[in-house]
């Protein structure tokens, strides 16, 4: 009775105070308008502008010239495009795998019964690097991995290993930055995983154990399926973030050596603000949008196979 009475009064009260559906619509619009304006000014507008600019040749300083699809034709015949896309996909895939697997393992470890103070300390410690700016992290690792004076080179030398030239050897530069990125951003994925892990109903795990499942079987057949929405979210977010990686490459290696760390967004920046080929850079931006969209769509389609909604 009480519930029914409450439900019946809600629409009446709402209509009385807002003046009906038409007014509701305006009020709603008023609420979203700040966000809408920001979206149009900083995302929607530049997005449309980028598409338009991709059809022009413009060096910033002299008038733009319409070239139609010329920038895209040049882009797809650019010998560097394959290299930067390969670098970007390598970085993104490595980032997704190492972040998701690493963060899941860390979350499992931290989620085990342990002293509460220790648990909070460990969580904070893992998350802390994420709060540091990329600039500071990049400079820090230039010191840490310095081939002559760096801590890593020193301690590897102590155990008889000759450290590679992390940032000047084309074979090591990208792996080094993948490692730095992992250290810097694993905390975010870790927090997502920990939150997801804590939503897994323990009674289902207990039931599995009661039925004789061992630890691995509980993890693989109960925990992972129940965490699959979290894993999916982490995968999407990590991929999109990784695909747009720019800061560490720009600060540490400037895309070198021999373009070994040049990513697609860095290439976009170089074309736009070093070569002053704004139209061409816009074409690259459109390509970045399309690639991320396609990969995300594929991920969503694949998610129907492996993501289990609770």
């Amino acid at each position: 009775m009480t519930t029914a009475a409450s439900v019946s009064t809600v629409p009446r009260t709402s209509a009385a105070t807002t003046g009906g559906p038409a007014t509701n619509r305006w009020v709603g619009l008023a609420f979203v308008s700040p966000a809408l304006v920001l979206f149009l000014v900083f995302i929607g507008g530049p997005f449309v502008f980028a598409i338009v600019l991709s059809l022009y040749s413009w060096d910033l300083l002299t008038p733009a010239e319409f070239v139609g699809a010329g920038n895209f034709r040049t882009l797809f015949s650019d010998p560097l495009l394959g290299k930067v896309l390969t670098n970007t996909f390598l970085f993104a895939i490595a980032s997704v795998v190492t972040h998701v697997v690493g963060a899941l393992l860390l979350a499992l470890a931290v989620n085990r019964a342990m002293n509460r103070a220790v648990s909070y300390f460990v969580r904070t410690a893992f998350f802390f690097p994420f709060l540091i700016s990329w600039s500071a992290v990049a400079l820090l690792f230039k010191y840490v991995l310095d081939p002559t004076f760096g801590l890593v080179s020193h301690y590897l030398g102590v155990v008889g290993i000759s450290a590679p030239d992390w940032f000047t050897d084309p074979h090591w530069a990208l792996p080094a930055i993948i490692g730095i990125d992992w250290w810097h951003t694993i905390g975010f994925t870790f927090v997502i995983m920990l939150a997801g892990l804590q939503t897994v109903p323990t009674h289902l795990q207990d039931a599995a154990r009661t039925d004789g499942a061992n630890a691995w079987q509980v993890f693989w057949h109960v925990t992972v399926p129940l965490m699959s929405p979290t894993l999916f979210f982490a995968t999407i977010i990590t991929f999109i973030g990784a695909f747009q990686i720019f800061d560490p490459m720009q600060i540490i290696t400037q895309g070198g050596p021999d373009n070994a760390t040049k990513t697609i967004v860095m290439y976009l920046y170089e074309q736009g603000f070093q070569s002053f080929q704004i139209g061409y850079a816009s074409a690259v931006a459109v390509l970045v949008f399309v690639v991320i969209m396609l990969v995300t769509v594929v991920q969503f389609l694949l998610s129907r196979v492996w993501v289990h909604e609770q």
Partner: peptide, 29 residues
């Protein structure tokens, strides 16, 4: 950029796609 999104999922997939995709294409311009 990840911090722009709520942790733990819950976002409408279409919104997620649109928002992130558009943001991806607009970095420097």
């Amino acid at each position: 950029d990840r911090t722009l999104l709520p942790p733990g999922g819950g976002m409408n997939r279409r919104t997620l796609l649109k928002g992130l995709g558009v943001a991806a294409a607009t970095p420097a311009l």
